[in-house]
């Protein structure tokens, strides 16, 4: 089933990806970690290929091609992944066009329930937002896990880890200076995500245990990972939460301090194993079970295929859901 050269190629890619992933965590004081199970999955299940090649062509070999056109819409956090997967699928299958739109998880859920799009991407479950009859119509496909990391401005030296309790104190406004959590004498500036966003919802539930956050004064609310990165890197004492993909972006990583949570490094491997808790499932909803032989079915299956789960997902700093 497997060609030795191909395996080496896949391993090399995976290793390179993880090397870059781990160099980010070096800032928080961790040594490099061995590739996650994901990387080995990639190598073990890849279809035969005569020469070492880049991920897209490996993907091409594993695809069940169905022609047609579908639109996926929703979560901006999942967008980079779904977008890349759709581009790979399109490249492998002529006659298939998958358009990926952002717009937010709410848009995705609304539109897939209304039949405006075939797939709704969401960071949150349909049950948590839609009315029960609408939510019941939708079929959930959990395609990945995504993680978030708490980041601070570079001048918050000496803080490499915050416990859940410390996070709660910081974000509810109980602690207002970094010296209360072992940092320098510097006021804490909170940069929130919009309260409707998946990032905020997940963080609040998993880390703050639904405590009420501080408001007013020097708190900012920024919609976007890009703006948050800029604001945190330029503001003394700023702290915020961003997605792994954005944290590991070569433009962002050098200008931010990434923190451990309860002593656990924010790595894809830790997220996959469940030890890093600031993570949530990425959902792709279809309206009912997709028809057999439809492009929706084929694309959702492709999202679970080794090409995506083993190669693409880790390369975008998400965690796979298949072993």
């Amino acid at each position: 089933m497997l060609n030795g050269t191909r395996r080496l190629g896949a391993l090399a890619i995976a290793a390179a990806i993880f090397a870059s992933a781990c160099s980010s965590t070096a800032a928080t004081g961790t040594p490099a970690v061995t590739p996650a199970p994901a990387a080995t999955t990639a190598a073990a299940t890849s279809t035969p290929a005569s020469a070492p090649s880049a991920a897209p062509s490996a993907a091409a070999a594993a695809v069940t091609c169905v022609t047609g056109t579908i639109t996926a819409s929703g979560s901006t956090a999942l967008q980079p992944l779904v977008d890349a997967a759709a581009k790979q699928y399109d490249a492998a299958c002529s006659g298939a066009t998958i358009t990926v739109n952002g717009g937010g998880s709410g848009t995705g859920l609304t539109q897939v329930a209304a039949g405006g799009v075939q797939i709704g991407d969401s960071d949150v479950t349909a049950e948590s937002r839609l009315k029960a009859p609408d939510a019941a119509k939708l079929v959930d496909h959990i395609v990945t896990r995504q993680g978030w990391i708490v980041v601070t401005n570079k001048d918050v030296t000496g803080v490499t880890n915050l416990t859940t309790q410390q996070e709660t104190d910081v974000w509810t406004g109980k602690d207002t200076n970094w010296n209360q959590v072992g940092g320098p004498d510097l006021p804490i500036v909170l940069i929130f995500r919009p309260s409707s966003s998946g990032t905020r919802t997940t963080f609040k539930k998993l880390v703050l245990n639904n405590a009420t956050e501080a408001t007013g004064g020097q708190t900012l609310t920024e919609d976007s990972n890009g703006t948050v990165t800029t604001a945190v890197s330029k503001t003394d004492g700023a702290v915020s939460v961003i997605g792994f993909a954005y944290y590991n972006d070569p433009a962002a990583k050098p200008i931010l301090n990434g923190l451990q949570l309860d002593g656990v490094d924010a790595t894809v491997a830790n997220m996959a194993s469940g030890t890093y808790k600031l993570a949530a499932d990425g959902h792709m909803y279809s309206n009912g079970t997709p028809a057999a032989g439809s492009l929706t079915e084929a694309f959702l299956a492709y999202m679970m295929s080794p090409a995506v789960q083993g190669t693409l997902i880790p390369s975008k700093f998400y965690a796979p859901v298949t072993k």
């Binding site: 056109t69 579908i70 639109t71 901006t76 967008q79 980079p80 066009t97 358009t99 739109n101 952002g102 919609d223 976007s224 990972n225 890009g226 703006t227 993909a245 954005y246 972006d249 070569p250 433009a251």
Partner: peptide, 27 residues
């Protein structure tokens, strides 16, 4: 639903793309 000549497909324009990139752009 896919041809660039069709009006019944999604179409992000340049201005919208600026908004998208400044908020969610990577790289």
């Amino acid at each position: 639903h896919s041809s660039p000549w069709s009006p019944l497909r999604p179409g992000t324009t340049l201005s919208v793309y600026i908004y998208k990139l400044q908020s969610e752009g990577l790289g």
